[in-house]
Every structure is written in structure tokens, then in C-alpha cells.
């Protein structure tokens, strides 16, 4: 047990250290982009988080299929954990995107394709979290959420197709100097570690909470059988 705890601590310390390193890297090593200025640096956080959002959403999708296939409660725990992290990461994508938009166009919100895309994605997974507590029966909840999780993920390419129809005023790509590319690559490491770590932590917590709930339920049912025995 203590080795597991040791590993967990090590994992989080490593993630923290990597974050510290990449932040230092951004402000000392990476050159300032000419047109956007310092705000452009938010991009190094924005893109890795966005990619991890998709990965987390894909995890919800896979776990949902797993649940429908096997009907094992732990699949649902995993989907719930991944769903929570998806919403969280997507919020970061949306916020960093808004900050970017503010400095590029002077408004916190514009109906640009990318902002619209991240907004819809964010809404999809926030709702995924909101519906969970509103369904009482655990099996029903897992079932409804699994179907939702699958459809939500399939929605992603459709949202992408439909935002492509919008008039775009977004700079489609910025030429990145080699040090900028390196920084971007470096940022993937701590962000991915953080996302994966959060999902695993949440997943184990969900499992433990469910088992606790089940045990409590069993205890609650125990006295109910006693009077029946008394009659006989």
C-alpha cells in the first residue's frame, strides 16, 4: 500500500515540477510572438489542453460503450471520471480561447468557429455532469449517461463540420519559430500527465464511493428481513 502512495506522490510531484519547468521555459527561453505579443504565450497551454479534452471525451465514449457492452458498474465510474475532466479541460480551452480572442479582436466573445466549437463541446459535457445526479437508480443513470456519452462524442465531428460553414476571421495558422514549437511540445507532457492523473484519481474515488453506497444499502436492507423471520 505504501509503495502505491509513494508512486502517487511521485507522480504528482513530477507533474508539478514539469509544470514549473515549462512555465519557466515559456517566460525565459521562448521568444515573444511579434503580432500578438505576450498573450500569444497562452497558446502553449491552450493547444495541449484542447487535445487532452478530445482524449478525455474519447475516454468517456469508450467507457460508455464498455458499459453498454458489459454492464459492469466500473465502466460507468470511469466514464463519469473522464466526463468530469472533459468538462474541466474544456472550460480551460474556452477561457484561454476567450482571452486570446479578447486580445486579437478586442471582444471577450465573438461567434468565431473555434470559440463556437469549444462552447458547444463545453455545454455537451457540462450537461453530462448535470444529468448524473438527477437520475436516482444507478443502473438507469449509467445506461442513460452511457448513451449520452456516445452520442456526445459522435456530435463532435458534426459540430466541427457545421462550424466550418461559418465565416472565419481567425488566423488559420501562425508560423511558429523552432523554439516555439519546442515549447509547445514540452507543454504536452505536464498537461497530459495532469489530465490522466485527474481521471485516474477521480475514477478510483468514484469506485470507492459506489462500493461504500452499496454497502450502506445492504445494511439498510438487513433489518427489513428480520420481522419476516419473526412471523415464521
Amino acid at each position: 500500500m505504501s509503495t502505491l502512495r509513494f508512486l502517487t506522490w511521485g507522480y504528482w510531484l513530477l507533474t508539478l515540477a514539469l509544470f514549473a519547468a515549462t512555465v519557466t521555459m515559456v517566460f525565459t527561453y521562448t521568444p515573444v510572438e511579434e503580432t500578438m505579443g505576450v498573450v500569444q504565450k497562452i497558446f502553449y497551454l491552450h493547444l495541449p489542453v484542447a487535445i487532452n479534452t478530445f482524449a478525455a471525451a474519447a475516454m468517456v465514449f469508450i467507457a460508455s460503450i464498455g458499459y453498454l457492452w458489459e454492464r459492469k458498474a466500473w465502466w460507468d465510474d470511469l466514464a463519469a471520471a473522464a466526463g468530469k475532466i472533459t468538462a474541466l479541460l474544456c472550460a480551460v480551452v474556452l477561457l484561454t480561447g476567450m482571452i486570446w480572442g479578447r486580445s486579437a479582436w478586442g471582444h471577450w466573445w465573438t461567434w468565431s468557429p473555434r470559440l463556437t466549437f469549444s462552447l458547444v463541446l463545453f455545454l455537451l459535457y457540462v450537461v453530462y455532469l448535470m444529468i448524473r445526479p438527477s437520475i436516482e437508480s444507478p443502473q438507469r443513470r449509467a445506461m442513460v449517461c452511457a448513451v449520452y456519452g456516445i452520442i456526445a462524442f459522435l456530435d463532435v465531428p458534426l459540430v466541427y463540420l457545421s462550424v466550418k460553414m461559418m465565416p472565419d476571421f481567425h488566423p488559420s495558422s501562425i508560423a511558429l519559430a523552432p523554439p516555439m514549437k519546442l515549447t509547445l511540445l514540452a507543454w504536452f507532457l505536464p498537461v497530459t500527465l495532469l489530465a490522466a492523473g485527474l481521471i485516474v484519481t477521480r475514477f478510483t474515488l468514484n469506485c470507492r464511493l459506489r462500493e461504500l453506497g452499496e454497502r450502506r444499502e445492504e445494511e439498510a436492507h438487513q433489518p427489513a428481513t428480520e420481522p419476516l423471520g419473526g412471523i415464521a
Binding site: V127, S134, S137, V144, Y148, D155, L158, V159, V163
Partner: peptide
């Protein structure tokens, strides 16, 4: 069909269906 057997909490169906339909509304 999925939520009708749960004691339907008001607005649950709308909450489920609206975001999933956003791509179609947007397109």
C-alpha cells in the same frame, strides 16, 4: 424512452436533448 421510467425530474429530457441537438441547430 430512456428517461421515462425514471421518475422524471422536470426538465431532464430537455437537458439531455438540447445540447445533443446543438450541431443540428447550428448547421
Amino acid at each position: 424512452a430512456a428517461v421515462s421510467s425514471t421518475r422524471l425530474q422536470g426538465g431532464l429530457l430537455a437537458l439531455l436533448v438540447f445540447p445533443l441537438s446543438l450541431p443540428v441547430v447550428h448547421a
